[in-house]
Every structure is written in structure tokens, then in C-alpha cells.
Design a protein around this nucleic acid. Structure first.
Lengths: 218, 218
DNA sequence: ACAATGCTCATTGTATACAATTCTTCGGCC
DNA sequence: GGCCGAAGAATTGTATACAATGAGCATTGT
């Protein structure tokens, strides 16, 4: 079942703008004109508008009523803000997962962690993409195991935040190994229902990622 | 300057649906047909679609691709989920505010707290509305003082969450007095830069609200 | 010369028309 | 009688046309 034709215009527009910002083609401060993006990405304005709202939620662009969207300045401060926020959210999810998860959840989380470890060892051409995907899966399983549907959906909504995905380009092998360690420790804490430890470990895990990204800025 | 003509169609649609859900005219599980809402609220489908996305973010409706939106079952569990989430967010904001706020911030927060206290004593016909507004202002000032723009915007996005607003209908005088106490304690902790205390107090403050609402359910 | 005012135009917000998808129902077949 | 499938209806997703808003510029009066 190929999803090549990708009949989802809003997603096309989203990825188009996202990619343009990440590669530096759209620079910070640039105003994003809906009609221009529509033409460039080959869809109409309607899905473009929706895509811009998504990017606003990601913290990547700002939208002012009747004035349109513009690319946010990605200062170290701003990136740090977003990661701090995520760290707390994910930490809370880990806390709840430790408190409420079932053996079934444990199985799924463990499997996701293994897939991540495998991805790191992979020599495939889309290794980075693979790492990113499997990592997402780990965090998503933990969010689901938190049994707080609202929290899980809020987290999933930001999992393909451009800022988060970008990080894997900058991660060194040693940092990836560290991620594996943290995943292991977090799983252990969750399985043994040690809520506070799971939370602390997850917060630190995310803050590690923040530091890596911030370092790139300087 | 009257805003009676209220040129914002999306907001009209949002408040229309929101009100319909709160008053029980739209019951949980009810499917929300865009064209129907458009006709009933007197705007076109385009702003209705946007309004539904806002309500999804609030946790009030669920949207499935190509299937549309439906009103969420507001089980005690689900309401609790949302409040737990908010409690952590607001707690983090208070933590950061205690760490980073300036004397100017302190002034604004204090003023907002006083306005809230006044609102409680008010005999005005829209007393509930006034209480709700001033309370929002307190929390918004604290969010701003956190100096984390992303966090502040995420919180503000959910401040007129129907679930949150609803609570003030159910609050008794004693509970409102308790809110005043908590506000005072939180401000004190923030001003004296006691981060952990500010966070704990804020979490408890929001969880109090949760308990009040949950109690209504039974 | 400069500030204020109104005009023009680019762009966003909204409405509506059209396409694609899902749901429903009805008829045929087993 | 019940299950499967196809046709049609209902509804969402997308495109486009139109209205309203805000920005920039020129013009005018002082």
C-alpha cells in the first residue's frame, strides 16, 4: 500500500514549509505569504492556512490576526524554552506511566527501545530518519502508557516538531549511546513503578537533547 | 467602540459550539456536522472548521480525519486528566516565575490578585464572569513572568477552555476564599524566589479546582 | 518641510463551489 | 435469512472567488 500520491494537501504544505525553514531557505523573520506558499508547494491556500496553524503550535512560526505568519527567530533562548517545556511534559508522562502502566505497556515500551537501539547500529542510508522515528516511538509509547489521553495527544502533536527532529543531525555516537542508557533506565523505573525516578530521568534525558542543540547554536 | 458586529466569524462559531456543549444542547458523543453548525451559527463552514480545531485543542471535541468532530465524553477521568495536565503546566510556570520574575512582574501579579479578590466581593450581575476573567488574569501574569514564551502561549491557548470556565459556577464562597489564600501564598513564594514552593502551591491550587469539578460529577 | 488624511494595493479572512471520501441502504447471491 | 457489494447520499477536504483589513504612498493643508 503505497502512500506516494499522499492525498493529504495540508500535510504536503506542512512539510514543504517545515523543510524550507529547516534548510534555511526561509530565514527567521521572513513573512510567510499564504498565496506564495500555495503556489510554491502546489496546493491551494486552504491547506496552507491549516499547515501554518500547526507550525504555530510547534513554536516555529508566529501568527498575528489579519497580519499573517512569520518565521520565528530561533534564538538559543527560544529553543531552550521549547525543550524545557517538553522536558516537563515528558517527565510527567513518565511519572504517570510508572504509576499506571500495565505489563502490556511494558512490553511495547521495551520493544520500542530495542528498535531504537537497532536503528543506531544501522548502516542504512536513512539512518538518521530511522533513529528519529524509533525515538519518537519510544516516547509515544510512554505517553500512551501514562493513561492520560489529553497529555498523550498534546505530546504527540509536537513529536514532529521541526526543532526536535533536527537534533538528530547533530547527535554524536556518544550522545546516542547516552540516549540508549537513559531509555533503559527510564524503562526500568517505569516497570518497577518508581514514579519520581522515572520523571527525573526523563527530564534529564530531554534536557540532554536541549544542551546538544544549544551547543550547535554557538 | 462597540464590538457588537463582532467581525470575527471564527470566534462566533467557537463560542456558539462551546456554549451549546456547556449548556448541554450538544450532548457527549454527538457528531458535529460542519454545515449544520455553519447554518445554526450564521457563518460559513470555513470559520467553523477553525473553531472545531480550537475545541479539539481544548480537549472538548475529537476530530478524526475525513470523519469529522464529535463531542467528547466528559468522564470524571477525562476531566481529571485535563486538570492534572494544567496543574503541572501552571506549576512549572510558577516555578520559572519565582526564578526569573522582575519587580515589575511582581507589581502586575499583585494587581491581578487584588482584582480577583475584589471580584469575589462584587455583587454585580456578571459576578461569575468577572471572577473568571480576573482569575485568568492572575494566571496569565504568572505565565508571562515565567519568561518562557512558548509555555506562556501554550497556557494562554487553553485559558478559555470551556471546562475551566465552567468551574466557577460550582465554586462555593469558601472555595473562592481558598483561592485567594493560594494566590497570596503563590505570589509570596514568587516574590521571594522560592521556586519549589511556588510550584507546589500552584499545583495544589489547580488540583483543588479539579476536585471541585469532579465532585460535581457525582 | 512635515504631519495628517485619504487612496491604492497586497494580503488575510470568509463564503461558496467542487472533489474525494466515508457511510448507508438496498438488492442480489449464497 | 444473512452476508456481501455496489450505488447513492451525506459529509469532509480542497480550490477558488469575493470581502475586509492593514500597510505604504502620495497628496494636501498648515
Amino acid at each position: 500500500m503505497s502512500k506516494r500520491p499522499s492525498r493529504d494537501q495540508a500535510k504536503i504544505a506542512y512539510q514543504f514549509v517545515r523543510s524550507a525553514i529547516l534548510t534555511g531557505r526561509y530565514l527567521p523573520g521572513k513573512r510567510l505569504i499564504e498565496s506564495t506558499i500555495a503556489t510554491e508547494s502546489g496546493v491551494s491556500r486552504t491547506p496552507v492556512r491549516e499547515a501554518l496553524r500547526w507550525l504555530e503550535r510547534d513554536g516555529v512560526v508566529s501568527i498575528e490576526k489579519n497580519k499573517g505568519a512569520s518565521v520565528n527567530q530561533l534564538t538559543a533562548q527560544r529553543v531552550s524554552d521549547i525543550y524545557e517545556f517538553r522536558a516537563r511534559m515528558e517527565g510527567f508522562a513518565a511519572y504517570l506511566a510508572a504509576e499506571r502502566s500495565t505489563p502490556d505497556d511494558h512490553e511495547r515500551i521495551r520493544a520500542a527501545c530495542e528498535a531504537f537501539t537497532d536503528a543506531i547500529g544501522s548502516e542504512s542510508s536513512d539512518r538518521i530518519r530511522l533513529i528519529s522515528e524509533t525515538n519518537r516511538e519510544v516516547h509515544r509509547e510512554i505517553a500512551t502508557a501514562s493513561k492520560n489521553a489529553f497529555l498523550a495527544s498534546a505530546l504527540n502533536a509536537t513529536t514532529d516538531n521541526p526543532l526536535v527532529v533536527r537534533t538528530y543531525h547533530t547527535f554524536s555516537t556518544v550522545e546516542l549511546q547516552r540516549s540508549v542508557s537513559f531509555h533503559d533506565l527510564i524503562v526500568e523505573a517505569i516497570v518497577s513503578a518508581q514514579c519520581a525516578r522515572a520523571e527525573r530521568l526523563m527530564i534529564e534525558h530531554v534536557l540532554q537533547a536541549r544542551d546538544s542543540v544549544i551547543r550547535e547554536f554557538n
